[in-house]
């Protein structure tokens, strides 16, 4: 378990508990037009369920299907880090929400050597 802020970040919650507040959080987030991108994390792979998204607010819905703790960092193609999620324990979820301009972005897990082991992906913003 890791410290987290407010109720928005559901990292440590059991699946059942994580689902309950998700509706409320998501409906608030959905008021501003945004695009959801499902992301699955496991050892050692990070899979984004969309190849490209329109520019604007993007919500990365991260689910940890693995046995270890993972997180999600969004960086520019050049490697500048834009946002980092909380650490998510196995079976947990969190949402990372940020505004993205057109371009190519890197998604990685920055815990230990997970990125080098394969936990990276790219997404295009058009």
């Amino acid at each position: 378990m890791h410290a987290r802020t407010k109720g928005r970040l559901l990292a440590g919650a059991a699946v059942v508990a994580a689902l309950a507040p998700a509706g409320g959080v998501a409906s608030a987030a959905r008021r501003a037009p945004s695009t959801a991108v499902g992301v699955g994390a496991r050892e050692f792979r990070l899979t984004a369920y969309r190849v490209s998204v329109p520019a604007g607010i993007v919500r990365f819905n991260l689910a940890n299907y693995g046995q270890d703790v993972h997180d999600l960092v969004v960086a520019t193609a050049g490697g500048r880090r834009l946002a980092r999620s909380v650490e998510v324990r196995p079976g947990g979820r969190t949402t990372l929400r940020l505004r993205l301009r057109p371009g190519s972005y890197r998604l990685v897990c920055d815990l230990a050597d997970h990125a080098a082991l394969g936990m990276h992906a790219t997404i295009r913003v058009r």
């Binding site: 499902g38 369920y49 819905n61 979820r93």
Partner: peptide, 8 residues
């Protein structure tokens, strides 16, 4: 619905 990207 967006069953792939939205939880639940």
């Amino acid at each position: 619905l967006d069953p792939v990207n939205e939880w639940g």
